[in-house]
Amino acid sequence: MDFCNFEGLYQSFIRVIKVHHQFLHIILEKLELYPGQPPLLFTLYKNDGLSQREIADKLHIKPATITVMLSRMEKTGLIIRKQDKEDQRILRVYLTDKGKEMCEELKKIMPVLNEQCFGNFTEEEKETFKYLLEKMADNIEKINKR
């Protein structure tokens, strides 16, 4: 493998990540959201009232990162945090009405993003691509567990 060849597979992968991130940022900026917030919103949309630790586990994000994200989202009125009734040490996170409305808006936008990304892919190509990405993630996870 020629590591100086910037036309290789890895460079193509980085390019896709970069242009996708830029496109997503443009879309989310109009909604005053950051790229990491939609997955968190959808997680709460499906499971309102999770603890910060549970959110971190579901999203595979460090708890400290979740704390920063939640603080920002709380300031913009998307979520509220309340102490657990049984265990005062636990903060539970809930979507506000604004947060639920944002999820509804995102549910309309995400298919547009997917169509922009995968519109000219066949169903078979989408499945193959998904399989290959999962395989890549598994390869990297194996390295990280060593």
Rank of each mutant, 00 (worst) to 15 (best):
R72P: 12
L59D: 04
N120T: 11
L41R: 01
I26H: 12
L132I: 09
S71Q: 06
K75G: 01
M73K: 02
N47Y: 15
I61R: 11
H60K: 13
R15A: 01
G99S: 08
L33V: 02
Q22I: 00
E115C: 09
E134K: 14
R146G: 14
T65V: 07
L106Q: 14
G8T: 03
M1L: 02
P35Y: 05
V16T: 13
K85V: 10
T76I: 07
G119L: 09
C103P: 05
K145L: 06
R72Y: 06
E54K: 07
L28Y: 12
R15C: 00
K135T: 14
E101P: 00
I17W: 15
N139W: 04
M73S: 04
N114C: 08
K30M: 03
K30H: 07
L78N: 10
I90Q: 06
R72M: 09
P63K: 12
I90F: 05
S71G: 09
P38L: 03
T76M: 10
L44H: 11
H60T: 11
F6H: 13
C103Q: 14
N5S: 05
E74T: 04
G77N: 08
K145S: 12
F118E: 09
I26Y: 14
L44F: 08
K142Q: 12
Y10R: 13
I80R: 06
I140N: 03
L132M: 13
E125N: 05
E123F: 09
P35N: 09
Y131A: 10
S71N: 08
R72A: 09
L133H: 01
M102L: 06
L33G: 01
P35G: 05
D87M: 11
Y45S: 13
L78A: 01
L59V: 10
L133G: 11
E123H: 01
K85L: 13
D48M: 04
H60R: 07
C4P: 00
L113N: 03
L133S: 12
L78D: 10
L33M: 00
C103T: 04
I109L: 05
H25P: 15
T122E: 05
T65H: 13
P63T: 06
L33S: 01
Y45C: 12
K130V: 12
Q22E: 09
V93D: 09
Q83L: 04
Y131E: 08
R81Y: 10
I26D: 15
F6T: 03
T128V: 11
V19H: 12
I143Q: 15
L70D: 04
P111V: 00
L91N: 14
R15G: 00
K18F: 02
N114P: 00
I79L: 06
Y131L: 14
N139T: 03
K142L: 00
H21D: 14
E7G: 04
H25C: 13
G119W: 04
L106W: 11
V93T: 12
R89M: 03
L113E: 12
G119A: 10
I17L: 08
K62V: 10
L40R: 00
